[in-house]
Design a protein around this nucleic acid. Sequence first.
DNA 1: CGTTTAATTGAAAGCAGTCAAACTATGTGG
DNA 2: CCACATAGTTTGACTGCTTTCAATTAAACG
Lengths: 244, 244
Amino acid sequence: MPETSPLALLARKLSGHVALSSDDFAAVLALPCQIRTLDPSTYLLREGDPPLQCAVLLSGFAYRQKLTGEGARQIVSLHVAGEALDLQSLYLDVADHNIQTLTRAEVALVPRAALRELIQQRPAVAHAAMISVLVESSISREWTLNIGRRDAQARLAHLLCEVAMRLDAQGLAGPDGYDLPMTQEQLGDALGLTAVHVNRTLKTLESAGLIVRNRRHVRIPAWNLLRDVGDFTGRYLHIGPQHA
Amino acid sequence: MPETSPLALLARKLSGHVALSSDDFAAVLALPCQIRTLDPSTYLLREGDPPLQCAVLLSGFAYRQKLTGEGARQIVSLHVAGEALDLQSLYLDVADHNIQTLTRAEVALVPRAALRELIQQRPAVAHAAMISVLVESSISREWTLNIGRRDAQARLAHLLCEVAMRLDAQGLAGPDGYDLPMTQEQLGDALGLTAVHVNRTLKTLESAGLIVRNRRHVRIPAWNLLRDVGDFTGRYLHIGPQHA
DNA sequence: CGTTTAATTGAAAGCAGTCAAACTATGTGG
DNA sequence: CCACATAGTTTGACTGCTTTCAATTAAACG
């Protein structure tokens, strides 16, 4: 018996917005699951396929992605450790997007039926799952705004702020910055830009002293400055009182 | 007692994806609500405010919208009659976006607490509400793709196809087209474009014979052509077997 | 080390934005 | 019913942000 259930992360995440009773908590931990370690870029779900399981990201990063008919890619959301990846498809018969790991990642695979049953029987868990979905929707709306109405520099700064705050909320980022394990092409796919322009924009932010880069590591020396350039306000993350 | 409850539309919408028992159905119809007729551009919810009620759109159009710090607007979703507008905020304490009527519209205002209680007590209704949220998320993802990775012509064509299919699914559009009561500026705000460019793009589509316009009325003479230009596939709408 | 992938840089082209003005509805008050 | 005011549409000229295409440099990997 593991000292810490692999699903403890999920249970903690779910209880972040809703108080779960100890019974509820235990029921989450008792979900059947398989642990897998996946290579970068592994597909967890493919558009058009029926979702059969719910993957919970235990470590690493993952993202949702869609392709146009011409093959252009848009990353529509990013995910850090602790997040359930398939709540979005839990009640839909056909996946409308792809989910891929960004890095090597550990996931817990929970059978779809087990999770649905848990949600069906425990209103508090259902409540928590709903909130999780709603927060993701909120982030999705902000991404739409970001891509639709901000220029490249603000768009990139905004994303860097968002990731900083989300990682910080999970205790995964410190004052020395964080690792953002995305290629510039992937950043472009997340921002609706080309890799070339991401490169130029990164350098602009860097030479303005707004970020310090070292490979994929990012440090934000003056949060307020980057926040202003990125027009970032963390409210849409619904994390609770945090930063500014 | 009204021959048809104003909430019948909502009940029908909810039962579109999940079988509701007659008890569930009746419980939805029995929700307390106030009917209001609202002028165009009336705010139903403001960013930063606590959501106190759940508005159900009985007739007309509405949209969600966010603003950048510089005042640029992005419409992040469109809504047609029959949709519940505040499920997105039902469990969040502070609104992260604005909701406005697009046209004159009738809404039923349901107290937030009543809806939450209904969902708490009726798993099938909770299930249906969750699906409604998930479908909206799916649409949001497609919008992100549309804005991030398609050029103006495809973007506009895609939106016109989406609205056509959504209205058709509600029986609100016929073979003679439909009224899209948006100004070109609003179309721009929905597509991440300027009004000027929307105008030029509309004329491009028009002169290519892909759409026929008369004021705000749109007819699509050759669905397949516009669909191809807009790279449109309706799967993300999760409406069920429909069109192509 | 050689190979592959990612990052970087330059030059040129293009899509969409900006600014401004004219035109067309729509609506109002006289 | 007309004159005027307002909101929305249309058009033109110009600018510019971002893309595209290509080539070079740097890093990661076996």
